[in-house]
Amino acid sequence: MSPFLALVRRDLALAFREGGAVGTTLGFYLMVVTMLPLGLGPDLNLLSRIAPGVLWVALLLAALLSLDRIFLNDYEEGALEVMALGPMPLELVAAAKSLAHWISTGIPLALITPALGLLLNLDIDAYGVLVLTMLAGTPAISFIGAIGGALTLGLRRGGLLLSLLVLPLYVPTLIFGISSVNAVLMGPGGFAASFLILCALSLASLVLAPIAAAAAIRMQLQ
């Protein structure tokens, strides 16, 4: 097995076996989505209109809280240093760990979305496209988030700073995710353009973000 896949498997095993790392994220997602109707009032028409946006924003927040899992534990116990000294380039290490984060966070969050859509009276046509856009957009969230996780490794209270750094970078993903859902719900056409840009964002971050994350890690390991 290649070291890349081995690292992905290791991170996945840690994420799924470590008490409730994935469950907590899903729980947070559920809580945010539950809180919003309580704040906005139970008007079903209103809820169904804003449901895609609410779900996307809640997904961003839930993913944000799990970002420090990508590097922080390994940094604190020294495993990251061993990986940096190993034969695999640190860029690939960052990519593998981001990929594992996507599989253990992005995919479960996207897949649980239909259940939460029921709570918000989401339009029946929107389920498929919403999950599709989330699956296409969450890689960008994990990979861009890895930059933030790497930059704030050595900081006390890095979590708050992490959100300040990373959320502005999530804006394009959010905008194109929502606009491709809306293109399907509101009118003919426009879905392909938004969806392709969303995929492009994910693919570009897949290539570029590990470079930045690896640079940030290297600086802090010196």
Binding site: L151, G154, G158, L161, L165, A215, A216, M219, Q220
Partner: peptide, 20 residues
Amino acid sequence: MALRNGVEDETLAGKLTAVM
């Protein structure tokens, strides 16, 4: 600005901010 303020080591703060 927040990242630069957040990191105590000034050289490291400069490098991390540059990446960001």
